[in-house]
Design a protein around this nucleic acid. Structure first.
Length: 226
DNA sequence: GCGACAG
DNA sequence: ATCTTGTCGC
């Protein structure tokens, strides 16, 4: 993968090491029918403040989608943003935040891709392996693969493919609004992940878990900046 | 060889 | 992600 001209050039040495680590973690990812009963659904998101990162986790009851808990963790960020290696920058702090939860979610919805990644290890899958938890990804923009634009009505979807593999679904979660990219992260399958994304997208483009995590990230950020 | 590129 | 003004639509 070449690099976008507008981003600082990554250290080839570092990229080599991280790529190898992804290839290794990729072997641990399991795409399968869920073996859990979804009662608690978590959402997470991160925001940045200078050289630090603020990660948030929210837990909602399912299918009511009522908030039951929200936690955050603020810490230093080690690496710059490098397309394809987002997890190494955000996952460490997300794991710390996850550790503060009093409730144990059955599934985690991550703001980013799952297996719809160049090496099938987007942040959702990466986090799932680290936590040994079912995860799914919901991204706002494509990272890799090709697709046709789904119909403009909510519920419409088209396949996202890469190298002859079905790696996700492009899902219209709201009428006339840009679709989201759904993919399994770990211990779940594409069909289930797609259904959950659609079922939890109420009046907005983003499913509630991700939307609420986004909201609290802003709230806590304002708190931290005082 | 020319683009494209999660957050 | 973050930096930023006005503007369109429910």
């Amino acid at each position: 993968m070449a690099w976008p001209q507008h981003l600082p050039p990554p250290d080839p040495q570092i990229v080599r090491v991280l790529t190898h680590q992804q290839e290794s973690m990729r072997q641990q990812v399991k795409i399968q029918e869920p073996d859990f009963e979804l009662k608690l659904l978590a959402g997470c998101d991160s925001s940045f403040i200078g050289e630090n990162i603020l990660s948030v986790f929210v837990v909602l009851k399912y299918p009511e989608l009522e908030l039951v808990e929200s936690v955050w963790h603020y810490g230093p960020v080690e690496l710059p943003y490098i397309p394809g290696f987002l997890a190494f920058r955000e996952a460490p702090n997300l794991v710390q935040a996850y550790g503060k939860l009093q409730h144990t979610p059955d599934l985690i919805m991550v703001d980013g891709h799952g297996i719809s990644h160049p090496r099938r290890l987007g942040i959702a899958s990466h986090l799932g392996v680290l936590l040994n938890k079912p995860t799914m990804g919901v991204a706002k923009k494509v990272l890799t693969g090709k697709f046709e634009e789904p119909a403009i009505t909510k519920g419409s979807l088209t396949p996202l493919t890469h190298k002859n593999e079905l790696i996700g679904n492009v899902v219209r979660t709201k009428d006339k609004v840009k679709p989201v990219f759904v993919s399994p992260g770990h211990l779940i399958d594409l069909e289930t992940a797609t259904n959950i994304a659609l079922q939890t997208a109420l009046k907005h483009k983003l499913p509630e878990p991700t939307r609420l995590a986004d909201h609290y990230a802003e709230v806590y950020k304002a708190e931290v900046q005082k």
